[in-house]
Design a protein around this nucleic acid. Structure first.
Lengths: 238, 238
DNA sequence: ATCGCATCTTAACCTATGTTTGCAAGCGAA
DNA sequence: TTCGCTTGCAAACATAGGTTAAGATGCGAT
């Protein structure tokens, strides 16, 4: 169940057998979320950490008038609300697809971190990587064209899903709608649709029914000005 | 010298006398940076943490063709490259104004964190707040108009500088050029200038010679759709 | 004083992207 | 099978913001 978490933490460096066992011993309550369902909402002060076990999730802020900005996507192995350990939530987290989530009490989490500096460090590192991803998104929204932005996002998710072993010969499930896509890139749905056509037309990828197929990986990376360094993966999946 | 760091960490909660003394005992090498000078550059694997003591700094990525995106600003008390402790730098940090910086060896920093969980936690919290700020910037770039975006940035810096005691009756030093402003908001200089005129014309603020004067704080907040919750300040400066 | 350079301003023009609207395709519920 | 809803697609039109270019202003260095 928490295997995903171990796998995620070990994306960067190995843990000791002791550490792994401590993680395996975490008390975990399972719950399933339906697509679009909120896992935490802005203002909450959670008492548990939400570990994503299967499915995808995303963080977002929705303004009163309905404008929405998605700020990150989460893949299995991510803790989606780790900041809830120290702060109240200033945004919401929702399920993108049907998702299995493990609830870990804050107390157990704190004990784990206090007793296992290596885990603490690994978790902090995932935090830092998440911040790096956020910065890269800023570059995209501030300085890249819609075409490059979309290409870049697909590259990023393809690489991240690949790192978690969720890519098989150029294909992965990425059950996101064009609306999600626009809300994460700061575009309108209509424009997103236009650009998507262009990407398909240029033979870089297919994207239908929640499945992403990359046809021309070098080409897609070039189109998105994608350099995976910021993901700080031990090995870059191809 | 490290007083600023203590002050920064205590923005969220008090430290024990012991903790404070441990921070004061950190070995610190001082260095001065001139405006625009790089403190760390993309690709570095630093061996020291850079603690900003006076002046301002900013993180940025610059693409080959010169497009630049500024991803955050730093005020005195911030450690500008804390992620260097665990990762190599995927972006650069430069001085905005003349700045005094304290260099703290990673070894000393690690020892401090290992021996003082409260400090470790406080520092982690500043990390989380920085991530929250990044998310708020994403909302701005993705979903807010240039006018709101600029207003929002001024609100944010006004609040942050205020929290560090650097605002006096509605004024603070914020020695940023319009080029920096555009590069942080994803705008062109020309448009930034246009909008700045509008903000002045609407009686919300003055901004000349690196000094920001807020004339209509509620008005400015409204214009920027600014809600300081995401800064997670203990008390919100006004 | 004067030169040089950075910063700020303004104006004219251009384009990437947003908005609105309408329709078609797919799919689950009854 | 039909209804309703979500998602994808397309076309026409509107605009926020980008680009280029040229002065103006201020200021440190000589």
């Amino acid at each position: 169940m928490v295997g995903r978490l171990v796998e995620n933490l070990e994306l960067y460096g190995r843990l000791s057998e002791l550490d792994r066992r401590a993680i395996a011993a975490l008390p975990l309550t399972l719950r399933r979320f339906e697509p679009g369902e909120d896992m935490v909402i802005e203002g909450d002060a959670p008492s548990h950490c939400r570990l994503l076990i299967s499915g995808l999730a995303f963080r977002h802020k929705t303004l009163r008038d309905g404008r929405r900005q998605i700020m990150s996507f989460h893949v299995p192995g991510d803790i989606c609300d780790i900041e809830g350990l120290l702060l109240s939530m200033d945004h919401s987290v929702s399920a993108l697809s049907r998702a299995e989530v493990g609830f870990i009490p804050h107390l157990a989490m704190e004990a784990l971190l206090d007793g296992h500096p290596a885990i603490s460090r690994a978790l902090w590192r995932t935090e830092l990587v998440e911040a790096a991803v956020a910065r890269e998104w800023m570059v995209g929204m501030g300085r890249r064209t819609a075409y490059a932005r979309i290409a870049h996002l697909f590259c990023e998710m393809y690489a991240r899903l690949g790192a978690m072993g969720l890519v098989e010969n150029g294909r992965c499930r990425f059950p996101i709608t064009q609306t999600h896509l626009s809300d994460s890139l700061g575009l309108s749905v209509v424009h997103t649709n236009r650009v998507l056509q262009a990407l398909r037309g240029d033979g870089l990828l297919s994207f239908r029914g929640g499945e992403l197929i990359v046809h021309d990986w070098p080409g897609l990376q070039a189109a998105g000005e994608f350099d995976p360094a910021y993901l700080h993966l031990r090995s870059v999946a191809a």
